[in-house]
Amino acid sequence: MGNSSIKKRYLTQRMAMAILVAAVLLVVAPIIFILVYMIANGYSALSWEFLTQPPSQAGRAGGIFPAIIGTVFLMLGTIIFSLPVGVLAGVYLTEYARNNWITRLINMAIINLAGVPSIVFGLFGLAVFVLTLNLGMSLIAASLTLAAQALAMTITTSRESVMAVPREYREGALAIGVSKWQTIRHIVLPSASPGILTGAILAMSRAAGETAPILVVGAAFITSGLPTSPFDRFMALPYHLYTVSAHVPGMPADVKWGVAIILIVMVLFFNIIVALIRVKARKR
Protein backbone atom coordinates (compact mmCIF):
# COMPACT_ATOMS: atom_id res chain seq x y z
CA MET A 1 0.00 0.00 0.00
CA GLY A 2 2.69 2.45 1.09
CA ASN A 3 4.81 1.23 -1.75
CA SER A 4 2.16 1.91 -4.37
CA SER A 5 1.57 5.41 -3.01
CA ILE A 6 5.26 6.16 -3.42
CA LYS A 7 5.11 4.83 -6.94
CA LYS A 8 2.17 7.11 -7.56
CA ARG A 9 4.08 10.08 -6.23
CA TYR A 10 7.01 9.38 -8.52
CA LEU A 11 4.62 8.96 -11.43
CA THR A 12 3.14 12.39 -10.68
CA GLN A 13 6.63 13.79 -10.57
CA ARG A 14 7.49 12.26 -13.94
CA MET A 15 4.38 13.68 -15.55
CA ALA A 16 4.97 17.10 -14.03
CA MET A 17 8.54 17.19 -15.27
CA ALA A 18 7.36 16.19 -18.74
CA ILE A 19 4.94 19.11 -18.71
CA LEU A 20 7.68 21.51 -17.64
CA VAL A 21 9.98 20.31 -20.40
CA ALA A 22 7.11 20.71 -22.86
CA ALA A 23 6.67 24.31 -21.68
CA VAL A 24 10.35 25.05 -22.27
CA LEU A 25 10.15 23.49 -25.71
CA LEU A 26 7.10 25.61 -26.50
CA VAL A 27 9.13 28.68 -25.58
CA VAL A 28 12.30 27.68 -27.37
CA ALA A 29 11.07 25.90 -30.51
CA PRO A 30 9.28 28.89 -32.11
CA ILE A 31 12.30 31.10 -31.49
CA ILE A 32 14.67 28.68 -33.15
CA PHE A 33 12.20 28.08 -35.97
CA ILE A 34 11.83 31.82 -36.59
CA LEU A 35 15.59 32.40 -36.54
CA VAL A 36 16.29 29.58 -38.95
CA TYR A 37 13.40 30.48 -41.24
CA MET A 38 14.37 34.13 -41.29
CA ILE A 39 17.96 33.47 -42.23
CA ALA A 40 17.03 30.82 -44.79
CA ASN A 41 14.59 33.14 -46.52
CA GLY A 42 16.29 36.47 -46.10
CA TYR A 43 19.95 35.90 -46.68
CA SER A 44 19.59 35.88 -50.46
CA ALA A 45 18.45 39.52 -50.29
CA LEU A 46 21.45 40.61 -48.26
CA SER A 47 24.14 42.19 -50.32
CA TRP A 48 26.38 45.21 -50.29
CA GLU A 49 23.94 46.98 -52.61
CA PHE A 50 21.03 46.20 -50.29
CA LEU A 51 22.80 48.00 -47.47
CA THR A 52 24.14 50.94 -49.43
CA GLN A 53 21.56 51.78 -52.12
CA PRO A 54 18.32 53.72 -51.92
CA PRO A 55 15.13 51.74 -52.64
CA SER A 56 13.55 51.67 -56.09
CA GLN A 57 10.19 50.40 -57.39
CA ALA A 58 8.53 51.19 -54.03
CA GLY A 59 11.08 49.12 -52.17
CA ARG A 60 10.79 46.04 -54.39
CA ALA A 61 14.30 46.58 -55.64
CA GLY A 62 17.35 48.55 -54.64
CA GLY A 63 18.40 48.80 -51.02
CA ILE A 64 17.46 50.21 -47.66
CA PHE A 65 20.32 52.62 -47.03
CA PRO A 66 18.18 55.69 -46.21
CA ALA A 67 16.12 53.64 -43.75
CA ILE A 68 19.28 52.43 -41.96
CA ILE A 69 20.61 55.98 -41.78
CA GLY A 70 17.25 57.28 -40.56
CA THR A 71 17.21 54.70 -37.80
CA VAL A 72 20.76 55.57 -36.78
CA PHE A 73 19.77 59.25 -36.59
CA LEU A 74 16.71 58.38 -34.51
CA MET A 75 18.84 56.38 -32.09
CA LEU A 76 21.33 59.21 -31.74
CA GLY A 77 18.54 61.75 -31.31
CA THR A 78 16.88 59.63 -28.65
CA ILE A 79 20.10 59.37 -26.68
CA ILE A 80 21.05 63.02 -27.03
CA PHE A 81 17.68 64.18 -25.79
CA SER A 82 17.01 61.59 -23.13
CA LEU A 83 20.35 60.59 -21.58
CA PRO A 84 21.57 63.85 -19.99
CA VAL A 85 18.12 64.67 -18.65
CA GLY A 86 17.62 61.11 -17.48
CA VAL A 87 20.97 60.86 -15.70
CA LEU A 88 20.63 64.21 -13.95
CA ALA A 89 17.07 63.38 -12.94
CA GLY A 90 18.29 60.05 -11.58
CA VAL A 91 21.01 61.87 -9.63
CA TYR A 92 18.49 64.36 -8.33
CA LEU A 93 16.14 61.64 -7.13
CA THR A 94 18.84 59.65 -5.33
CA GLU A 95 21.23 62.30 -4.06
CA TYR A 96 19.20 65.44 -3.53
CA ALA A 97 15.46 64.74 -3.27
CA ARG A 98 14.23 64.24 0.26
CA ASN A 99 12.63 60.94 1.00
CA ASN A 100 9.06 62.14 1.30
CA TRP A 101 5.75 61.26 -0.31
CA ILE A 102 6.38 63.50 -3.33
CA THR A 103 9.61 61.68 -4.16
CA ARG A 104 7.92 58.35 -3.69
CA LEU A 105 5.09 59.46 -5.94
CA ILE A 106 7.56 60.57 -8.60
CA ASN A 107 9.42 57.28 -8.41
CA MET A 108 6.16 55.41 -8.79
CA ALA A 109 5.13 57.59 -11.72
CA ILE A 110 8.42 56.92 -13.48
CA ILE A 111 8.24 53.17 -13.03
CA ASN A 112 4.68 53.12 -14.32
CA LEU A 113 5.34 55.44 -17.24
CA ALA A 114 7.89 52.95 -18.48
CA GLY A 115 4.92 50.65 -19.07
CA VAL A 116 2.72 53.11 -20.95
CA PRO A 117 2.05 51.87 -24.51
CA SER A 118 4.31 53.35 -27.15
CA ILE A 119 1.34 54.44 -29.25
CA VAL A 120 0.32 56.75 -26.40
CA PHE A 121 3.74 58.37 -26.53
CA GLY A 122 3.13 58.71 -30.26
CA LEU A 123 -0.01 60.72 -29.56
CA PHE A 124 1.93 62.85 -27.07
CA GLY A 125 4.64 63.53 -29.63
CA LEU A 126 2.10 64.37 -32.31
CA ALA A 127 0.28 66.88 -30.12
CA VAL A 128 3.37 68.47 -28.55
CA PHE A 129 6.27 68.28 -30.98
CA VAL A 130 4.65 67.99 -34.40
CA LEU A 131 1.73 70.35 -33.85
CA THR A 132 2.19 72.62 -30.82
CA LEU A 133 5.92 73.22 -31.27
CA ASN A 134 5.32 73.13 -35.01
CA LEU A 135 8.31 70.91 -35.76
CA GLY A 136 6.27 69.10 -38.37
CA MET A 137 6.69 65.47 -39.35
CA SER A 138 10.43 65.63 -38.97
CA LEU A 139 13.41 63.69 -37.73
CA ILE A 140 13.65 65.97 -34.71
CA ALA A 141 10.00 65.57 -33.76
CA ALA A 142 10.36 61.79 -33.96
CA SER A 143 13.60 61.85 -31.95
CA LEU A 144 11.99 63.96 -29.24
CA THR A 145 9.00 61.63 -29.14
CA LEU A 146 11.19 58.55 -28.76
CA ALA A 147 13.31 60.42 -26.20
CA ALA A 148 10.23 61.22 -24.11
CA GLN A 149 9.41 57.53 -24.15
CA ALA A 150 13.00 56.56 -23.32
CA LEU A 151 13.16 59.08 -20.49
CA ALA A 152 11.33 56.88 -18.00
CA MET A 153 13.81 54.12 -18.76
CA THR A 154 16.97 56.23 -18.57
CA ILE A 155 15.83 57.79 -15.29
CA THR A 156 15.07 54.39 -13.79
CA THR A 157 18.35 52.80 -14.80
CA SER A 158 20.41 55.84 -13.75
CA ARG A 159 18.62 55.98 -10.43
CA GLU A 160 19.26 52.31 -9.79
CA SER A 161 22.91 52.45 -10.81
CA VAL A 162 23.54 55.56 -8.72
CA MET A 163 21.84 53.96 -5.74
CA ALA A 164 23.98 50.86 -6.12
CA VAL A 165 27.24 52.81 -5.62
CA PRO A 166 28.52 51.81 -2.17
CA ARG A 167 27.99 54.39 0.55
CA GLU A 168 31.63 53.93 1.58
CA TYR A 169 32.85 55.57 -1.62
CA ARG A 170 30.75 58.64 -0.98
CA GLU A 171 31.84 58.82 2.65
CA GLY A 172 35.47 58.43 1.72
CA ALA A 173 35.28 61.41 -0.59
CA LEU A 174 33.17 63.60 1.67
CA ALA A 175 35.47 62.85 4.61
CA ILE A 176 38.43 64.48 2.90
CA GLY A 177 36.60 67.69 2.20
CA VAL A 178 35.36 66.97 -1.29
CA SER A 179 32.08 68.69 -2.01
CA LYS A 180 28.88 66.85 -2.72
CA TRP A 181 28.78 67.65 -6.42
CA GLN A 182 32.47 66.78 -6.84
CA THR A 183 31.79 63.48 -5.11
CA ILE A 184 28.92 62.79 -7.46
CA ARG A 185 30.87 63.91 -10.51
CA HIS A 186 34.15 62.09 -9.75
CA ILE A 187 33.11 59.10 -7.65
CA VAL A 188 29.42 58.29 -7.98
CA LEU A 189 28.89 58.82 -11.71
CA PRO A 190 32.05 56.94 -12.80
CA SER A 191 31.12 54.00 -10.58
CA ALA A 192 27.55 54.05 -11.88
CA SER A 193 28.54 54.48 -15.50
CA PRO A 194 28.37 50.82 -16.60
CA GLY A 195 24.79 50.66 -15.35
CA ILE A 196 23.89 54.00 -16.86
CA LEU A 197 25.48 53.01 -20.14
CA THR A 198 23.61 49.73 -20.17
CA GLY A 199 20.33 51.55 -19.69
CA ALA A 200 21.18 54.07 -22.37
CA ILE A 201 22.05 51.43 -24.91
CA LEU A 202 18.93 49.43 -24.13
CA ALA A 203 16.88 52.60 -24.56
CA MET A 204 18.64 53.18 -27.86
CA SER A 205 18.04 49.68 -29.13
CA ARG A 206 14.42 49.98 -28.13
CA ALA A 207 14.18 53.25 -30.02
CA ALA A 208 15.64 51.52 -33.06
CA GLY A 209 12.86 48.96 -33.11
CA GLU A 210 10.00 51.25 -32.13
CA THR A 211 7.43 51.66 -34.86
CA ALA A 212 4.11 52.89 -33.50
CA PRO A 213 5.31 56.33 -32.31
CA ILE A 214 7.11 57.16 -35.54
CA LEU A 215 4.11 55.94 -37.49
CA VAL A 216 2.09 58.58 -35.66
CA VAL A 217 4.59 61.42 -35.87
CA GLY A 218 5.23 60.73 -39.52
CA ALA A 219 8.03 58.57 -40.80
CA ALA A 220 8.10 58.49 -44.58
CA PHE A 221 8.01 55.34 -46.67
CA ILE A 222 10.25 56.70 -49.40
CA THR A 223 12.18 59.94 -49.29
CA SER A 224 14.25 61.43 -52.03
CA GLY A 225 17.74 61.20 -50.62
CA LEU A 226 18.90 61.34 -47.04
CA PRO A 227 17.68 63.88 -44.51
CA THR A 228 19.90 66.95 -44.65
CA SER A 229 18.54 68.73 -41.59
CA PRO A 230 16.74 67.68 -38.40
CA PHE A 231 13.57 69.18 -39.83
CA ASP A 232 13.48 66.87 -42.84
CA ARG A 233 11.24 63.87 -43.15
CA PHE A 234 12.99 60.57 -42.78
CA MET A 235 12.82 56.86 -43.44
CA ALA A 236 13.28 54.30 -40.68
CA LEU A 237 13.86 50.56 -40.78
CA PRO A 238 10.93 49.40 -38.65
CA TYR A 239 8.52 51.62 -40.54
CA HIS A 240 9.98 50.37 -43.79
CA LEU A 241 9.40 46.78 -42.72
CA TYR A 242 5.82 47.63 -41.77
CA THR A 243 5.11 49.21 -45.12
CA VAL A 244 6.81 46.65 -47.34
CA SER A 245 5.19 43.76 -45.51
CA ALA A 246 1.69 45.15 -45.12
CA HIS A 247 1.13 47.71 -47.83
CA VAL A 248 3.17 47.00 -50.94
CA PRO A 249 1.72 44.27 -53.17
CA GLY A 250 4.08 42.03 -55.10
CA MET A 251 6.91 42.46 -52.65
CA PRO A 252 9.62 39.79 -53.06
CA ALA A 253 9.66 37.68 -49.90
CA ASP A 254 13.42 37.73 -49.50
CA VAL A 255 13.47 41.54 -49.44
CA LYS A 256 10.98 41.58 -46.55
CA TRP A 257 12.96 39.01 -44.60
CA GLY A 258 16.14 40.87 -45.45
CA VAL A 259 14.77 44.08 -43.93
CA ALA A 260 13.69 42.14 -40.85
CA ILE A 261 17.16 40.60 -40.49
CA ILE A 262 18.91 43.96 -40.74
CA LEU A 263 16.52 45.49 -38.20
CA ILE A 264 17.06 42.65 -35.74
CA VAL A 265 20.81 42.74 -36.22
CA MET A 266 20.84 46.47 -35.47
CA VAL A 267 18.79 46.01 -32.32
CA LEU A 268 20.68 42.94 -31.15
CA PHE A 269 24.04 44.48 -31.91
CA PHE A 270 23.41 46.91 -29.09
CA ASN A 271 22.05 44.21 -26.80
CA ILE A 272 25.31 42.31 -27.30
CA ILE A 273 27.29 45.42 -26.41
CA VAL A 274 25.24 45.67 -23.24
CA ALA A 275 26.01 42.07 -22.39
CA LEU A 276 29.73 42.77 -22.88
CA ILE A 277 29.58 45.84 -20.63
CA ARG A 278 27.87 43.77 -17.94
CA VAL A 279 30.52 41.08 -18.10
CA LYS A 280 33.28 43.67 -17.89
CA ALA A 281 31.66 45.51 -15.01
CA ARG A 282 31.29 42.26 -13.10
CA LYS A 283 34.99 41.52 -13.55
CA ARG A 284 35.88 44.80 -11.89
Binding site: I34, L35, G209, E210, T211, A212, P238, L241, S245, I264
Partner: peptide, 24 residues
Protein backbone atom coordinates in the same frame (compact mmCIF):
# COMPACT_ATOMS: atom_id res chain seq x y z
CA UNK B 1 20.95 28.59 -23.53
CA UNK B 2 17.22 28.91 -22.95
CA UNK B 3 17.67 32.28 -21.27
CA UNK B 4 19.82 33.51 -24.12
CA UNK B 5 17.09 32.58 -26.60
CA UNK B 6 14.40 34.22 -24.49
CA UNK B 7 16.53 37.35 -24.21
CA UNK B 8 16.89 37.28 -27.97
CA UNK B 9 13.13 37.08 -28.35
CA UNK B 10 12.62 40.03 -26.02
CA UNK B 11 14.86 42.07 -28.31
CA UNK B 12 12.65 41.45 -31.35
CA UNK B 13 10.92 44.69 -32.31
CA UNK B 14 7.15 44.43 -32.36
CA UNK B 15 7.02 45.20 -36.05
CA UNK B 16 9.11 42.10 -36.70
CA UNK B 17 6.72 40.02 -34.65
CA UNK B 18 3.86 41.51 -36.64
CA UNK B 19 5.64 40.63 -39.84
CA UNK B 20 6.23 37.07 -38.70
CA UNK B 21 2.58 36.76 -37.72
CA UNK B 22 1.61 38.09 -41.11
CA UNK B 23 3.69 35.77 -43.26
CA UNK B 24 4.17 32.67 -41.12
Amino acid sequence: VVKLLVELLSGFPSVVMGFIGLVL
